[in-house]
Amino acid sequence: MSNWIEVGAVDDIPVLGARVVRNGDVDIAIFRNNNDEVFAVTDACPHKQGKLSQGIVHGQSVTCPLHNWKIDLTNGEALGPDEGCTGHYMTKIESGKIFVEIN
């Protein structure tokens, strides 16, 4: 069953930045890009579990701070020749508030 949870305001996240939502043992990284789109993926790079929330956001992707893997924020997949995938969450924005779908 899906469960939309409000996690904060869009403005709580810097443009081209990220914040972390702590869901029990799992950290979810919430990203905001230059078009005020918001994305959510598990805060662990498929390569060596680098914290994607600490990376650099560009377009609809983030570059992992550990070894520069690029992750597509729309689906959690590694981009380019790299292969791997991290967990991905649906998000929506209502009246400036971010909601993340947690199953």
Partner: peptide, 11 residues
Amino acid sequence: AHEFTPLKVIG
């Protein structure tokens, strides 16, 4: 300050 605190703690 946003850099050092989680946006939210749930679950």
